[in-house]
Design a protein around this nucleic acid. Sequence first.
DNA 1: AACTATTATGTTATATTATTACAAATAACG
DNA 2: CGTTATTTGTAATAATATAACATAATAGTT
Lengths: 153, 153
Amino acid sequence: MNNKVLPQILKQAEELCRERGVRLTEQRKTVLELLCISDKPLSAYELLERMRGVVKNPVPPTVYRALDFLLEQGLVHKLESLHAYVGCTHPDHPHASQFLICDDCGEVAEVEDSSVAKSLKAAGKAVGFRTKRPVVELLGTCAQCVAKQDDTT
Amino acid sequence: MNNKVLPQILKQAEELCRERGVRLTEQRKTVLELLCISDKPLSAYELLERMRGVVKNPVPPTVYRALDFLLEQGLVHKLESLHAYVGCTHPDHPHASQFLICDDCGEVAEVEDSSVAKSLKAAGKAVGFRTKRPVVELLGTCAQCVAKQDDTT
DNA sequence: AACTATTATGTTATATTATTACAAATAACG
DNA sequence: CGTTATTTGTAATAATATAACATAATAGTT
């Protein structure tokens, strides 16, 4: 995530939490911040490492609790196929996004394709399934890395 | 998976492996079989437990190696959000399926919705992303459990 | 301010999922 | 056969995640 937008993201997060009557504590804000300034998804234990020096003595529950909160509030997303977490790029509205995960460079793009959302909804409806949380992750190669590969072959 | 179709699935798997020049060994067949006769997805360690008595002294690598092979051959699928594995219901052709996962009863339905596949493909193409492996898992409540819940509320 | 209930954090231990590394055995192929 | 590939055996450990219970901080009420 571009860290130019970090202050804005944090401000927005604080506002959302205030509106909802939930508490964006220091620990939670730290985790959100670390995820947002990272250009890659981070695992819980990578987050743990980066919390040292910021939070006094972080241990796994410290991280997982903060993540649980942030996930609940839709401020971060979990990438199931990577066991890693990313900051949400547009937490202002509830949404079901899709993730394009490049296994070459590690970049992750969050997209919100209405046509995908619609077809998934329809597929569920067709069999009476009530979706709570869609997990849509496309693993492959991003445009940039595709170009690089085509150069060398 | 309905175990009436088990012999057919195994026969098909053997045929596919023969055609492809790969070996469906006893261990691999055992894992495939265990997944197919289970009505729920199984974790690697659940598989490990069920292998005792069938295979002499199974340890984690035993299971994970068999799973790796079966995943590569498209004979089983991994449910990333559950860390669990299921037998494929139609291994005869390559496909990108979606999984409807009921978090009430644990049932998993594998569906192959062409409209979903199409929209995902389009979403990737729009940004030049080359998808190798789509992960599409809808977590929620199946029709049967929705009905049950509506009864009691 | 003091009391209480709720929420958040501290702390220790452990459960669950997955991989590494190297040796031995088996199968495929000339 | 002899050689190479692949598969399996074996032991240890890495990586991810949760449980359980104690303490502390906060919010709301008197």
